[in-house]
Structure formats: structure tokens, C-alpha cells
């Protein structure tokens, strides 16, 4: 009988393995065909780095110290290659009213050179020979998912959204910081909040902005949050990060015309997602753990009670022994 069972087990295992391997070999062909198809098709989507702006319930501390617990534990860091061979570490946090980025990159000189001042977009004056950083927002509306729930209305809304947010409205979304200004907390005319720190041959710069109440809002619907900052919606290829080191002869100049400059075209865009509050400390665990522990203790007691009638008590045992 045992031999019979063993035989059945062996046959089953054999059939399983051989069929799986067989299927796997067929699939190689299917995979190849599929991949080929995909390359020609329109559905091909580039893989970007994803910048996550994690949610912090309480106030975000405006400290540019990357070793601060807030940046170390709450945000998730991603390294992005940028122009001039700079590698930028990007962290981001939001509290649904503001979003902040912490950029860190190597730069062995804190110094800045006083140079010509330059006007950008007719309203801000920047020094062109300084160290600096900018975050460029370039929405790709065709790709961005502007709605998360597709009802009939939403499909309508979505086309409205695309219509509303034409290139003009969304261009010029560039947040700057440069080392001419104070490293302490400052807010520029466009409402961009910055704070910087130079430490151990590295710049650590916070760049952020209020995202509620239309500071960045060009399309006011009922909601006051800009569509780029709708929580939980992935914005494909939205962000570009650029930093420059004046000591190396780099400057904002070279990076100013995002659409014309060849270098900038080479610049890889990153996806962006602003995360809403997540249940990252799930409390239901305590409920189920409690039920389990109480249940098990109760079962043990009940089983002991069930067994009690059977086992002679000490007194009874003594009496039995005397007999």
C-alpha cells in the first residue's frame, strides 16, 4: 500500500515539474513575441525614477539636516542623476497643504561669486554665478491620470481637465533656490519656500511650496489643490531636478531654457506621487492579537475543565492508594 502511495506521489511530482518546464519553454517564445509587439506599439512606457512625497500628519520641520529623524525615517530617498554629472538625493514630504523637497548633492565649495543679476519670467532676480538648484514641473497631461474613479462624469471631467491645463498655464513651474540668498528660511515672490545648509562638502536644500489654496493653482475647480498635487495620483515624468556648482563654472544660465537647451533634453524626468495619509501603523493588529490570545487561554482553561472529571484529585488518589 505504501509503495502504491509513493508511486502516485512520485508520478505527480514528475508530471508537475515536466509540465511546468514545458510551459516555461513555450512561454519564452510568447514572451519574445509579446516584447517585440510592445516595442512597436504605442503602449510602451518609459520607466522613470519615482519621487514619493510621503505624508506627515504633524507639522513638517523645516530642517535641511538630512540626518533629522523626519527625513531619515518618514520620507523615502531616491538618487537621481542630473546635469553635469551631479547625483542628487531627493527626499520629499507633504502634509497635504505644503509639499517640501530636500535635495542633497556633493559640492566641495560653499562659496559664491558675485556676478551679474538676471531676471527670470519678469519677476525674480537671480544671481547667475552662484550654486543653486531648481525643480522643474513639466506636466504630461496625456499621461497623467487626473481621476482615480472612472464614472461617466469623470471621463467628461478628465477631458475638461486636459482642455483646461494647456501648456501656457503649466509652463514656468520652476522652483528655484540659489546660494546668494539667505540659507535660513526664506520665501520668494512666487511663494517658494527655501532653506539650505552646507555641511561636509554637501549642499542640503529644502525647496517647497504651499499646494493648497491656489498658490500654484491655475485651474480652480471646487477643490483648491492643484491637479498636479492631487494625492495618490501618479504624475508621469513630472519632475526634473537640476543643480549647479559655480566653482565648476556651471550656472543657472545653462539650464534656464528647459525646452531649448540640449543638455536639459538629456535630463531624465522623474515620476511624482503625492501620498495621502496611509495606514502605516495598522491598529487592527491589536484587535486580532487580543482575540487570539484571549481565545487560546480560554480554550486551555476549558479543555482542562473538560479533562478534570477524569483525573482523580489528590484526595481521591490517596484514597485509591490506601485501598
Amino acid at each position: 500500500m505504501i509503495r502504491f502511495y509513493l508511486l502516485i506521489i512520485i508520478i505527480t511530482v514528475y508530471v508537475y515539474f515536466s509540465s511546468i518546464t514545458f510551459l516555461a519553454t513555450i512561454n519564452v517564445n510568447i514572451v519574445n513575441a509579446h516584447v517585440g509587439e510592445k516595442e512597436h506599439g504605442e503602449g510602451k512606457s518609459e520607466m522613470h525614477a519615482v519621487v514619493l512625497s510621503k505624508h506627515k500628519d504633524v507639522n513638517i520641520e523645516l530642517t535641511a539636516d538630512p540626518m533629522n529623524k523626519q527625513w531619515r525615517e518618514l520620507s523615502s530617498q531616491i538618487d537621481i542623476d542630473s546635469l553635469y554629472g551631479h547625483k542628487i538625493s531627493v527626499n520629499s514630504l507633504n502634509n497635504l497643504t505644503h509639499v517640501f523637497f530636500l535635495l542633497s548633492w556633493n559640492d566641495s565649495t560653499k562659496g559664491y561669486h558675485i556676478g551679474a543679476l538676471r531676471e527670470i519670467n519678469n519677476h525674480t532676480i537671480y544671481n547667475t554665478n552662484t550654486d543653486g538648484a531648481k525643480i522643474v514641473f513639466e506636466p504630461h497631461q496625456e499621461e497623467a491620470q487626473t481621476t482615480s474613479i472612472a464614472t461617466k462624469d469623470d471621463v467628461q471631467n478628465r477631458s475638461n481637465n486636459i482642455a483646461l491645463s494647456d501648456k501656457k498655464n503649466n509652463s514656468g513651474s520652476v522652483w528655484y533656490w540659489d546660494s546668494l540668498g539667505p540659507t535660513s528660511l526664506s520665501v520668494d515672490k512666487e511663494g517658494v519656500i527655501t532653506k539650505a545648509q552646507w555641511k561636509n562638502n554637501q549642499w542640503h536644500v529644502i525647496i517647497g511650496k504651499r499646494i493648497l489654496d491656489g498658490v500654484h493653482n491655475t485651474q480652480s475647480n471646487n477643490t483648491t489643490t492643484h491637479s498636479l498635487f492631487k494625492p495618490g495620483i501618479l504624475q508621469k515624468g513630472l519632475l526634473k531636478f537640476v543643480v549647479w556648482d559655480s566653482a565648476e563654472g556651471e550656472s543657472l544660465n545653462k539650464t534656464i531654457n528647459i525646452n531649448d537647451n540640449k543638455d536639459d533634453k538629456l535630463l531624465q524626468a522623474a515620476d511624482f506621487i503625492l501620498l495621502p495619509t496611509l495606514n502605516i501603523y495598522p491598529k487592527d493588529v491589536y484587535l486580532w492579537s487580543g482575540i487570539l490570545i484571549i481565545g487560546v487561554i480560554f480554550f486551555v482553561l476549558l479543555e482542562i475543565k473538560l479533562h478534570n472529571g477524569l483525573v482523580l484529585s489528590k484526595q481521591e488518589r490517596k484514597e485509591e492508594d490506601l485501598k
Binding site: 520607466m47 519615482v50 514619493l52 510621503k54 523615502s76 491620470q145 482615480s148 494625492p231 495618490g232 495620483i233 501618479l234 515620476d271 506621487i273 501620498l275 495621502p276 496611509l278 495606514n279 502605516i280 495598522p282 487592527d284 493588529v285 486580532w288
Partner: peptide, 16 residues
Amino acid sequence: YFKGVEGVEVTKPPWF
């Protein structure tokens, strides 16, 4: 939660 974004890991598994 919001619609899943591949390559991103921000949640934790359900209790079980």
C-alpha cells in the same frame, strides 16, 4: 487606497 503605482512601496501588508 489610491490606485496602485508599480515600483512604489509605501503600505504594509494586511494584519494576517
